[in-house]
Amino acid sequence: MEKRRLGKTGMEVSLLGFGGFHLVEIPADRAADLLTTYLDRGGNYLETAASYGDGESEKKIGEIVKNRRDELVLASKTGVRDAEGAMAEIDRSLKNLQTDHLDIIFMHGVGDEADLEAILKPGGSLEAAKKAKEMGKVKHIGITAHGQPDVLIKALKTGEFEVMMTHFNYFDKFNFPKLEDQLLPLVKEKEIGTLCMKPLADGFLWQNVEDAFRYVFSLPVDAVVTGMNNQEMLEMDLKLAEEFEPLTEAEKEELFANAEELGDYICRQCDQCSVSKELGEDLKAVFRMEGYFDRQMYDGRPRNPAEYALRDRLRFWFGDRELAEARYQKLELKAADLLTKAAEFKACKYGLDIKNKLEIVDYKLGESEVMQ
């Protein structure tokens, strides 16, 4: 399996990383079989968190780590924000994982500026991570975040973090365009280790696994980390990593045009909006706020109960609803304003019904109390 350099850490990581969250769903013996197969096939990045099953994931991984520590890059995460609590959690993670050091400790799930400030301030969890590094308990310090990446970008500009992890996939590319447009160039400029999570958009892309993995493998990331809780899933993901060939630009455009999850509702944030030369940037801004709000998942269309339930569960997954509402109010032109211009709009090259979409955004973020 291909290995890539993890930023400036000096470590190399396999293209496919093993995320430990879903190990809490299966017995320890099955978890051990999966982890052993993964390592035997050339994988070397294992990642978990203290919060996954309140240490259960770490304990299952620890049974493998104790015999193969020198073969792998091992990471865990802490969501605690004070130094004393974070150090206690790091120590517990080391015990659970049956090792004397972590290659990476992540400050996990940084949500907003107040959260970041709590980590960075004296007595915050970064202080504990640095102390743990001085003591040899931790080699590198990282950070993770979900959703709109402004806070993550701010955190990485501090120079305090050597590795970062967030979500990249061909669905959220269009809900959070800063992920690829601003965050990826920043981490490459600063040589920050770059890890992709959620390649299937929290499972939303489950019907197009091959396209989803090939897309993220083609990004300038160092590894793609995913959860695997059965042998069939592991074998599929390993095969995709082992046989990976980068997408061409033409293949990317074909994916963006034809992916069923994007369909004729998701705004592709085109460089040149085909709908209106004059108002294209305003349309994109409105639809970008919808992406922040609920990942453009509610589109007013009836679906079977399973698909509806998945969308309903994932649409507010990242908790950016209030941020979207606040930023929407600051837009110069909102959906209601643009609806007055709808008769002038040309056809969207991706088939979006712009008038209908603006009505839905006005229902989500504007003044309409009932979906028209």
Rank of each mutant, 00 (worst) to 15 (best):
K178H: 13
R5I: 14
D282R: 09
M107F: 01
L15T: 02
K139R: 15
V151E: 11
R30Q: 15
F256Q: 02
L310W: 10
G124D: 09
K252Y: 02
G111P: 02
N258G: 06
K131P: 00
A306F: 15
C273K: 03
P122L: 05
D202T: 13
G42F: 06
E322P: 04
V110E: 01
K355G: 11
K357P: 04
G136V: 02
S57W: 00
P246Y: 06
Y292G: 05
P177M: 07
S218A: 07
M228L: 07
A28K: 04
F106P: 02
Y363I: 06
K334Y: 06
L23Y: 03
T37M: 11
K157S: 03
W317P: 00
I266V: 15
P149L: 07
R321C: 06
Q269R: 13
G109Y: 12
I61L: 08
E278T: 12
S276P: 01
S274R: 05
L279N: 12
P302A: 12
N304W: 05
Q296Y: 10
L72Y: 10
I143A: 07
E369K: 15
Y38R: 04
A250N: 08
H101G: 09
G7C: 09
P149T: 03
G263L: 03
C273Y: 01
R268D: 00
R4H: 12
A343K: 14
L310T: 10
Q148F: 12
L279E: 12
L126D: 01
P149V: 04
E367A: 11
K334G: 13
D33K: 15
K130E: 05
K357Y: 01
Y38M: 06
E307D: 11
T144L: 05
K131L: 13
E12D: 13
T166F: 07
Y292V: 05
M236I: 09
E189M: 11
A309C: 01
H101D: 07
S14F: 08
I104K: 08
E162L: 04
A324E: 08
D112N: 15
G227H: 00
S57C: 01
S125G: 03
E290T: 03
G123S: 10
G10M: 01
D211F: 00
L240S: 04
Y265E: 01
D320P: 02
I105R: 00
W317E: 14
N229L: 08
L195F: 05
G43V: 10
G10R: 01
E242L: 07
L205H: 04
D362A: 14
A326T: 09
E25A: 10
D299P: 02
L195K: 03
S76K: 00
G111M: 15
G123E: 10
I90L: 08
G291D: 02
S276C: 08
A49K: 04
C196D: 08
Q269M: 15
E242D: 11
R288K: 14
K3S: 10
R313W: 11
E359A: 14
